[in-house]
Amino acid sequence: MNIRLENINDWFEVENLTREAFWNVYQPGCTEHLIVHNLRSHPALVSDLSLVIEDDSKRIIAHIIYCKATILSDSGEKIEILMFGPVSVLPEFQHRGFGRKIIEYSLQKSKELGYGAVAITGNPKYYRRFGFKSGSEFQIYYANLPRTEEAPFFMIKELVEGFLDETVGKIIELDDYTVSDEAVEEFDLKFSPKIKEKRPGQLV
């Protein structure tokens, strides 16, 4: 298995991989493949952290994407950190350590590139194994939620110890993480038809 940078020739394969990985997981169908597509053209994209894992046959089986994010402190200061996701692994390769491998590799790469912290929205049980903690533990809060309302899905990992020690504020998330149903329906026409299903445990 090989981890390498994504290139333009990978784009459709990666978007299809992402669609396969998330289809009917959190909602009927998914939106993550369009989010990946949109983030690629966003000025906040960190192309040095758009990574794939390919197997011996050069098939892409996993992908991760990073963008710059901003913490707006209560004092008005803007602190640049990273945010990653979606992280995608082909269904037949899930639960075999490839998600962990690409996350750990990319976090180390992020530190080498000089970033001080990384944020994520996701499953706390999964991401705590990588050293992520609730944003509120750093006094960094999610978007416009009341600070008294815990947002367990919003987590941060310091890559440089103490990087956020003097900071109290909120994360400003990119608009590109939100897409309309109409835009997803149109984008889906580029891919093979799949059946949307309502399943137990979905968020929507």
Rank of each mutant, 00 (worst) to 15 (best):
Y126G: 11
F132W: 04
S134N: 12
R128E: 15
R129W: 10
N144G: 05
Y127L: 10
V118P: 05
S136N: 11
K157M: 14
L145A: 14
E150W: 03
R147A: 08
Y126S: 04
K133M: 11
K157T: 15
Q139H: 07
I120N: 10
K133T: 06
P152G: 07
L159G: 06
N123E: 15
V118Q: 02
R129C: 15
E149I: 10
R129Y: 14
F138P: 01
T148C: 14
F138H: 05
P152R: 09
L159V: 14
N144V: 12
I140K: 00
P124D: 11
K157G: 11
E158M: 04
P146W: 09
F130A: 13
Y142Q: 04
R147P: 02
V160D: 12
G131D: 13
I140R: 00
R147G: 08
N123S: 15
I156N: 00
E149W: 07
Y142E: 01
F138S: 01
R147I: 13
I120G: 04
R147L: 10
F163S: 07
L164K: 00
G131S: 13
P152S: 04
G162N: 13
G135I: 02
M155E: 14
F132Y: 09
L145V: 13
E137G: 07
E150Q: 09
E150R: 01
T121W: 01
R128V: 09
Y126F: 12
E149A: 05
F153R: 03
F130T: 13
P152Q: 09
F132P: 06
E161H: 08
M155V: 11
N123R: 06
G162K: 05
Y141L: 09
P152A: 05
L145S: 13
F130L: 12
